[in-house]
Amino acid sequence: MQEAGMGQAVNEALREEMTRDPNVFIAGEGVGVSIHDSPLMPTHGLLEEFGEKRVRDTPVSEAAIAGLAVGASEAGMRPVVEIMFNPFFTLASDMIVNHAAKLRYLSGGKSAFPLVVRMKSGSGFGAGCQHSHNLEAWVCHSPGLKVVMPSTPAEAKGLLRSAIRDDNPVIFIEDMNLYFAFMPVPEDDTLIPIGKADVKREGKDVTVVAWSRMVHTALAAAEQMAGEGADVEVVDLRTLVPLDEEAILTSVKKTGRLVVCHEATRTGGFAGEISAVVMEKAFSSLKAPFRRVTGPDIPVPASPPLEAFYLPSPEKLAGAIREIMNQG
């Protein structure tokens, strides 16, 4: 089994799906010739392999990029477009929120929009808040979109292949830090179903629900807490919409304690949604209050000590776990 970063895994998925289906094309700012070019980046080498017809460098025009995907997918093509960084989603948001998400419903089910919007997310580069701002809760709040946030290269590959084959618009968010974290990627054509969570670590005392980069934070915190005698289960959602409620509830019913960890800011974050699901469906299983460990309600700062303060760390997460272990 080869080791690769998430960008390379995404690259493999794109290459395989473009080879399999001539309706798949990619478009975006620098998907062909890039100012960020490196073998670790998701679209590296695709222009050379598939040519200008299928690898479309666009002007800096996020609304047009997203609209391109909406229009082409209605015609039965399978566009995979890239919005360079998650905060630039705002420039494409009318096409995604008002059109990709709603046009099928407005058509009474006649039309389908099988498109994928890939976005890079994650702080840690000193890039500041207009390049680092995790907005997954925004898209989760728009019915009609599926939302995928993988935590490992292997899953990114399997999930992206499923996303491209899905007949609905899929928002696929890749944490850039994971482009530089090398993990095993199987050389096969596994499809990972959208909407299925994965238990990354089994435990009996506390459930930590996380996704994307924070799964690794959760695993590190679980290791720390193991030394203190707490057995932590880590549930990686992988997909936020549709949400695998069953996986969350099964785990919480077993452990009786829940911490949700996300990098995005706190107020209106997706942790609140998970908490609500657990309150509605498994309240009586809880032995201690729900806790969330998230970014604070501030724009992501650029200065290294400030940015480090922003990011949920294994230590902060372990602190929350310790707190509810002591509460019941």
């Binding site: 995907a69 909406v70 229009g71 015609a75 093509m77 008002n98 059109h99």
Partner: peptide, 23 residues
Amino acid sequence: PCTTTVVGGGIPIAVGRAFAQQY
């Protein structure tokens, strides 16, 4: 296939539809 009430919203979609025709 698409009637949108977002003013100007149809224009990028038309570009996408025309892209599919050209492709």
